[in-house]
Design a protein around this nucleic acid. Structure first.
Ligand SMILES: [Mn+2]
Ligand SMILES: [Mn+2]
Ligand SMILES: [Zn+2]
Ligand SMILES: [Zn+2]
Lengths: 138, 138
DNA sequence: AAATAAATAGAAATGATTTCTATTTAAGGG
DNA sequence: CCCTTAAATAGAAATCATTTCTATTTATTT
């Protein structure tokens, strides 16, 4: 059912595979959308009688720390996470559908060349695009 | 004292020029840094005996709506605003010094060409860089 | 100076996120 | 399998940045 490569990766990092964690990953694998902790919680409560929201927050952040999920910035300033498949192997950014929440990895060759312009030493940069995906355009 | 061109611009938009608003603009004009509402409030309370935090929130958002200020994304996920001088005349992004908070407008020619790649219709995009400014590097 | 719509202070509410702690559980070794 | 142990969890409570509400004040126009 769940991606075995992903499980192996997590085990290699000494991260326990719990039913809740599997269900969270499964949700992101099934629907390639971004979800807020609250949305993930709502999904988990269908499967599990007991389910704490703080655990959802902790696990989403854990997955983000290990490159499995990426944080998505939306205008409502709440937390959103999405699956990041090309985990740091190739530079890419994320494109979010404002309609359905779909998140696509898009390879990029944007490189900050600006340290010459203003004398800034760039430590990190962030690019994100919003729009309407092909499916939602119809 | 305060930028008269800016005042004229605001009057043209039927925005009342109040002492608090002048003081907020003056702060951003004096120090080209990003500030949180709380930081602006702390500054205003030195000059004004009575000063409500909700007014600060409202005014910062008002200025942002009218392109005078721009929102800055920091990792602490709190609101930050900075002066945006090149207001939409030229495409540019913002570079933030992680040390002193300085914000620089940097012209860009980054154009999202990705609607071809994945069939996405891009509505807006956001780029921001973080680093250390020349002054703080010394 | 008076009229008026907008701006404000201050208190209170909101709600997403975090913290805390006792209990449960996954993983590894016998 | 059964034990052991460190990690994960639920649930309640706290936190705290941001927003809402309302009576009062104020900037602008007559
Ligand atoms: Mn990704
Ligand atoms: Mn700007
Ligand atoms: Zn879509
Ligand atoms: Zn600096």
């Amino acid at each position: 059912m769940i991606d075995n490569q992903l499980i192996a990766k997590l085990k290699a990092k000494h991260i326990k595979i719990t039913p809740k964690r599997e269900a969270i990953l499964q949700l992101f694998l099934n629907r390639e959308c971004c979800f807020s902790p609250d949305q993930v919680w709502g999904h988990l409560r269908k499967q599990f009688k007991h389910c704490g929201l703080p655990s959802v927050y902790r696990n989403l952040e854990l997955f983000a720390q290990h490159g499995v999920l990426t944080k998505i910035q939306k205008t409502d300033r709440r937390l959103y996470y999405a699956l990041c498949k090309d985990h740091d192997d190739h530079p890419h950014y994320h494109m979010i559908c404002v309609d359905c929440g779909r998140v696509e990895d898009v390879p990029t060759n944007i490189v900050p060349e600006v340290d010459k312009v203003k004398g800034f030493k760039i430590l990190k940069h962030f690019y994100q695009a919003e729009g309407v995906c092909q499916q939602c355009a119809n």
